[in-house]
Nucleic acid binder design. Structure first.
Lengths: 212, 212
DNA sequence: TGTACATCAGTGAACGCGCGTTCACTGATGTAC
DNA sequence: TGTACATCAGTGAACGCGCGTTCACTGATGTAC
């Protein structure tokens, strides 16, 4: 019976990733040590090299795991949903729930998005572009968007993704304090709604002065 | 004649800050070493302690210097400007110019905003709140905003500040490639305009379905 | 099923290295008279 | 203006420490027959 050894190896690898994520709650990847991670798991430092070449490699694996569940979460959104207000509430709620359940993953991504390790930064960037691409496609297919310039659709998709990132970090910062967390969620919803209002009145040319 | 010694000390302190900023181009503050900074300046490691207690303290000083010029830059914006489209163009241009001239400062702030050092994170957060407060006040005073709920004004101000941060980092990432940098600036302008359109059609209650 | 050999995840000791921090010092600048 | 003493920014040597990485190893798992 083969695979027993392989299964054990996989479990150890996951233990290393989990330990790293735990340690990354209060520090960034570039200060995380090989000895530190193996100590947290309870194994010899040299064993680390059976799973990763260095800490950067572990970091990239952690990026992938962090995004994995997020991708599925947004599949549940009824994007075909006709009512836009309900959809936005749901989007913000899905995000908030995910931030709560996977706080450590989000904290890691926020920290490393502009962190010191270029490879990890690039991996995160790539995943975010994937989200913007997908959202772009879904927006373009919605009624009322047929005549939009593709560049403008992309612009809108990026605005929304950036907003969701800001919202996620705001919710993260309010952690351990339910009332201010609820406030962050509600603000995020209002802001998404304001973007949607802008979208529904969008014109290619600057509007005549409405005095902002 | 007193002050000669003090002036020299100030110059050394600034040299340490400049050297740190240079080194932070490709790493984060938490991996920056005292020996590394003093080596870059060309002085003995022990001299560091005449100016800062530790690297964190240097980091906080760097946050202050990074925001200092930015505060002045936005004073130049003719906020009393009646035409909103021109104002938005100007805001994005001021930001883009500043990002270009002070790229290292922005990179540092982006990296440390969610970085590993809590004290530095808090210092940045504080400065950003100051910007949101100020923008909130200026928005509330504009024509057409008199009847807005103060909470909604604050919500809008935070949305704009977050958008400007996203825009700044997008411009930063496009550095060294003028065409994609110009694209980033233009996208930032369109997005700000979309937010403004949303603002001018904002209502307290969810709009009836317009199908996003 | 049993045996003999191969694989390989994890061990534990060892290494050289650069780190942060301390300390007594030096010599230019500042002050009192 | 000149002299004697005080201050203090910067020096250079020394320290103990934890780091990443290497290496020969062990023993459980896997494979061939």
């Amino acid at each position: 019976m083969t695979g027993l050894r392989q299964a054990q190896k996989e479990r150890t690898r996951q233990a290393l990733l989990d330990a790293a994520l735990r340690l990354l709650e209060h520090q960034s990847l570039s200060t995380l040590g090989i000895r530190e991670v193996t100590r947290e798991v309870g194994m010899a430092p040299a064993a680390f090299y059976r799973h990763f070449g260095d800490i950067e490699e572990l970091g990239v694996a952690l990026v992938e795991q962090s995004f994995e569940s997020l991708r599925f979460a947004f599949d549940d959104l009824g994007v075909a949903q006709a009512d836009s207000d309900l959809l936005m509430r749901q989007a913000v709620d899905v995000l908030a729930g995910h931030v709560r359940r996977h706080a450590a993953h989000f904290r890691f991504l926020a920290r490393e998005r502009y962190g010191g390790l270029a490879v990890v930064r690039r991996a995160i960037h790539e995943q975010l572009r994937w989200f913007a691409d997908r959202l772009s496609g879904e927006l373009a297919a919605r009624p009322g968007m047929e005549r939009w310039d593709p560049g403008d659709v992309r612009m809108l998709a990026e605005l929304i993704v950036n907003h969701l990132i800001s919202a996620a970090t705001a919710i993260l910062e309010a952690e351990q304090d339910p009332p201010s967390e609820q406030r962050a969620v509600y603000t995020a919803y209002l802001q998404l709604r304001l973007i949607s209002v802008g979208r529904s009145h969008w014109t290619d040319q600057p509007q005549s002065d409405r005095s902002l």
